[in-house]
């Protein structure tokens, strides 16, 4: 029972990280109608920014990572994706993959391919809940990711910009007729997604303080899987998909017979979900427009 409970907490915590990354994928997909495969690498950019600024203090380093990721996210959109708006989805997809390699290669040139250690903070104690003991970073991640998701949900539902984001994702032309500047909304979406990716990087480093140029690749793919499981384009879908995938991963790791195959288990879940419900768990059928 104690193992079950602590595994569940660990799963929700990891799921929170996946959800934050998945939100970036899903929001960009919903609004710019593109798969930003360089999104995972923003996590890595944030990680190295923390590595560079950690000598000042952790808070400054985290703030610097968020700011720098937002700037990089906006620049990527402006320089790489915006010129391709209206061209074939394949061209945009290939460009995104190119940007991903570009970021990884830059990191390799600047920092080398050897692992760097980025110890943001160390926690000696564990949190005791009855018989269950939980790592402090796990709790921090859980609480912070819940807060971030709640804040994002409120922002999207109640702010004018948030509602404009929904309007643009539903019907770009009609949104323009309202006077909404679609380019600005896309830029804001990239900024939010990049900030969330930076935070995801922070929490990942709290759990295991090591970084390489491909630091963001695997979490990126996992979070993309989570976004598709939840229904790409759907914000609640990304949250549900992320949490679900995190729980599946930790439980699979906890079962000795399954643990070598955890990745296979996760991607099999994706295949099953797509077979049963091709739009994802919370995805909506796209309206046919005449």
């Amino acid at each position: 029972m104690e193992t079950f409970f602590s595994t569940l907490i660990n799963g929700l915590s990891l799921g929170g990280i996946y959800a934050m990354i998945a939100l970036g994928y899903t929001m960009v997909y919903g609004i710019a109608k593109m798969l930003n495969f360089a999104h995972g690498d923003i996590i890595m950019v944030g990680g190295y920014t923390i590595f560079l600024f950690l000598f000042i203090n952790p808070i400054v380093a985290i703030a610097a990572a968020i700011v720098f990721c937002v700037v990089i996210g906006i620049l990527i959109e402006k320089l790489a994706y915006k010129p391709l708006r209206g061209s074939s989805p394949l061209a945009v997809l290939i460009t995104a993959i190119g940007v991903s390699y570009l970021l990884q290669s830059f990191a390799q040139i600047l920092f080398g391919s050897a692992t760097k250690f980025v110890e943001i903070a160390t926690f000696e104690k564990k949190l005791q809940l009855g018989a269950v003991s939980i790592d402090i970073p796990t709790i921090i991640t859980l609480v912070c990711s819940a807060a971030v998701m709640a804040a994002l949900s409120i922002f999207v539902k109640y702010s004018k910009t948030g509602r404009a984001m929904i309007a643009v994702s539903e019907d770009k032309g009609a949104a323009q007729l309202m006077g909404i500047n679609v380019n600005t909304i896309i830029m804001i979406t990239f900024a939010i997604g990049s900030a969330l990716a930076a935070l995801a990087g922070v929490f990942t480093l709290l759990k295991s303080p090591a970084i390489t140029p491909t630091f963001g690749a695997m979490p990126g793919i996992k979070a993309f899987t989570a976004a598709v499981i939840g229904g790409i384009g759907s914000i609640p879908g990304a949250m549900v998909g992320g949490l679900l995938l995190g729980i599946i991963e930790t439980f699979s790791n906890a079962v000795p017979a399954l643990s070598p195959y955890t990745d296979a288990v996760e991607f099999s879940i994706l295949i099953i979900v797509l077979l049963v419900k091709p739009t994802g768990l919370l995805g909506k059928k796209r309206r046919e427009k005449v």
């Binding site: 509602r163 929904i166 309007a167 539903e170 032309g173 009609a174 949104a175």
Partner: peptide, 9 residues
């Protein structure tokens, strides 16, 4: 044409 209200809002 076709009204194009934002159906989710």
């Amino acid at each position: 044409e076709g009204r194009r209200v934002f159906s989710e809002l």
